[in-house]
């Protein structure tokens, strides 16, 4: 099979998919979206890379251990939870507020985003670990 078309398209499309994932991630703040599906979409982009190239090339493109990524994600999620302990409010209590930033104007900030970021990392990590476990042997 001629992989030229697939590889050329992948090089462009991967970035679009990842950007779409990021868009979904931030949309999750008030609209459908969120860390879980954003993570799945991003993992989908990486899987497309795996299909177009081989595992070694993709590893050199994205030189991170997915298992460590799971750990980092859990750290984020757990950290936002344990933050409640510091302020003596119940576990997982979130804080939010509005901040005026230059250029961006009124921005609403929410600690739940950090939790969601953790979910994002965990989902990417878990999905890719599973795919790699199955793919490695072949």
């Amino acid at each position: 099979m001629n992989e030229l078309i697939l590889r050329t398209v992948t090089a462009v499309v991967t970035f679009i998919i990842i950007l779409f994932g990021i868009q979904l991630f931030f949309a999750g703040h008030y609209y459908p979206g969120g860390g879980f599906i954003a993570g799945l979409v991003t993992a989908g982009a990486i899987i497309l890379l795996l299909l177009a190239f081989d595992i070694k090339t993709v590893r050199s493109m994205i030189p991170i251990s997915y298992r460590t990524l799971i750990g980092i994600g859990l750290l984020f999620a757990l950290g936002t939870g344990l933050g409640g302990l510091v302020f003596d409010v119940p576990f997982l209590t979130h804080a939010h507020g509005h901040v005026m930033l230059p250029l961006l104007g009124d921005v609403s900030l929410h600690t739940a985003v950090l939790f969601d970021l953790g979910v994002y990392f965990v989902v990417v990590g878990v999905t890719m670990t599973i795919i790699e476990t199955i793919g490695e042997e072949e």
Partner: peptide, 15 residues
């Protein structure tokens, strides 16, 4: 719940 959970996360990094 939090103690073993925290431990598990830390352990991932020093496997």
């Amino acid at each position: 719940i939090a103690i073993p959970l925290t431990t598990a996360v830390i352990l991932i990094f020093c496997v």
